[in-house]
């Protein structure tokens, strides 16, 4: 079955590669430049600038980390085949479940590493602008974003079992960007649709995770108007996010279990 030590060892190898490759740093640098440009704009009063900075920074952080996770997760398996590193790895006494769980954990470790770099930039920027960070909402936002990244990682893993890297990357990215307005579009279409199409829309609505639920950036920016979410809401969001992650992970595992290497 699953070997926890095996999972951690494989995850460590994924993290080592993510840290030693330059991609994450390039993404962080590009996003930081964007955030730096926002900071340099001087046409708001200082209070307005802090809010503008926080909002932009959180959005950019979220998008850049999501892009990193989709790329990392979608390429894990194709790259193992391309380099043929999968053979010496799978010749070890580990199950395929251990392999895929290790890869997923490694991607999540890399996401945390990327997020941590962004957080440092965010905290530094807020401090430079003299603003305060609403820690309660901010930490809740980070937690929910990590949950969203887990959904994206498991989905990208599954997609990479079904299609090649380029296609998995495209579908994963489309999924992430369309998820922001999918529920709004469904809401508009719902009222003007027939019964059958309504059922379809409902199925889509419940079948696709509503990624906007995991984004508290707006609330974190306007912290004066918002309290941190209650424990029960956080628990429900956790259950909601985890259920999608588990389903996608199960699909990925089933696909990988009988796949010739």
């Amino acid at each position: 079955m699953i070997s926890l030590r095996g999972v951690f060892l494989i995850a460590k190898s994924v993290l080592i590669e993510a840290v030693r490759r330059r991609e994450i740093y390039v993404i962080v640098l590009a996003a930081s430049l964007l955030i730096g440009m926002v900071m340099s704009i001087d046409f708001f009063d200082i209070k307005g600038l802090t809010k503008f900075y926080r909002e932009t920074a959180l959005k950019v952080m979220g998008m850049a980390t999501a892009a990193t996770v989709i790329v990392l997760a979608a390429r894990q398996l194709p790259r193992e085949f391309e380099r043929r590193t999968i053979y010496p790895l799978m010749a070890r006494p580990i199950s395929r479940l251990t392999f895929i769980a290790g890869k997923l954990l490694g991607v999540m470790f890399s996401a945390v590493f990327c997020f941590a770099l962004f957080m440092l930039i965010f905290v530094f920027g807020t401090w430079r602008l003299g603003g305060e960070i609403p820690w309660g909402l901010f930490l809740q936002h980070i937690y929910l974003q990590l949950l969203m990244l887990l959904i994206l990682a498991t989905l990208s893993f599954w997609l990479s079992m079904l299609m090649n890297f380029d296609a998995a990357l495209t579908v994963g990215a489309l999924f992430y960007f369309s998820a922001a307005f999918a529920s709004t579009v469904i809401l508009y279409l719902y009222d003007s649709s027939g019964t059958l199409f309504r059922w379809f829309l409902l199925a889509v609505n419940y079948g696709i995770p509503q990624l906007t639920l995991f984004d508290l950036s707006g609330k974190a920016v306007h912290a004066q108007a918002w309290e941190p979410l209650s424990f029960s809401v956080m628990a429900q969001l956790t259950a909601y996010g985890l259920s999608f992650a588990v389903i996608y992970f199960a699909f990925a595992t089933i696909c990988f279990r009988r796949r010739p290497l």
Binding site: S13, E17, R21
Partner: peptide, 18 residues
């Protein structure tokens, strides 16, 4: 069984960043 086996694949390439 894999616990008791050492395997060398046909084309051996290993993680370049390790």
């Amino acid at each position: 069984s894999r616990r008791r086996i050492g395997y060398l694949p046909e084309v051996a390439l290993y993680y370049p960043f390790m």
